[in-house]
Design a protein around this nucleic acid. Structure first.
Lengths: 123, 123
DNA sequence: CAGAATCCGAGTCGATACTG
DNA sequence: CAGTATCGACTCGGATTCTG
């Protein structure tokens, strides 16, 4: 629709939509929810169990945002009780890869971060 | 297939410090500030210029947090007017790589996200 | 130039209660 | 099971002012 959509997205620029995307990625739950879908479709309650501590409200909100951005698909089965499955889209899968790298970084370097923090706080 | 989780830190667990780290990474400015240091040491004002729209307060706050976590080093030169240089530490450099991948993802896929969003909002 | 300190509105988030 | 609706606490972050 908007034809002046330039190909030169630059998050360092003030009004660039990629900033908004970085914010989404950076919110409290997005990374974990996408990670929870990495091995295939999951039900709402499965994701909630996997991502410890997420509230129903925040999980719903996060999934809705991801769905809106085309990163996650939602499939509701007309059964009783209801069953809803969420899955990464192809686009979402391409995002999952770099996010997993971040997750791995956190896993492997957190100890060094904690050490640095202790040193800084001691001084 | 299920991922092996042999490492001690698990962001999916409730009390894991990696959650806090993911939050830091995900805040409004961290990714951009680290990216601004990718090509070498930069002065405070240089970073502020590169990361459009960041306020002095938030830039200071972000840099302090990164310094505390051992990701960025701060060097103040005793001159008038003051000159302060920030640089990625070796640890910070290892984080910059996956962050850059995220940035690249945002640059190259943002158009598809915007399309998906328009479709979702039209419905 | 590089920052510290303060104020304060906007948005985020969680807890709780309710529904098909 | 998979949500929706609402409320209040809390935090984030921008604007402003001041300093060595």
């Amino acid at each position: 629709m908007t034809l002046e959509r330039t190909l030169a997205f630059d998050p360092y620029a003030r009004e660039c939509p990629t900033r908004e995307l970085l914010n989404r990625i950076g919110d409290r739950w997005t990374v974990l929810v996408i990670g929870a879908l990495r091995d295939g479709p999951r039900r709402f309650s499965e994701i909630a169990r996997r991502v410890e501590g997420v509230s129903q409200k925040m999980l719903t909100q996060t999934l809705r945002a991801l769905e809106r951005d085309g990163l996650v698909s939602r499939t509701a089965y007309p059964e009783v009780p209801p069953r809803v499955e969420y899955a990464l889209t192809e686009l979402g899968t391409t995002l999952q890869e770099p996010l997993q790298a971040i997750e791995e970084w956190a896993r492997t370097h957190m100890d060094r971060v904690l050490e640095a923090r202790e040193r800084a706080d001691a001084a």
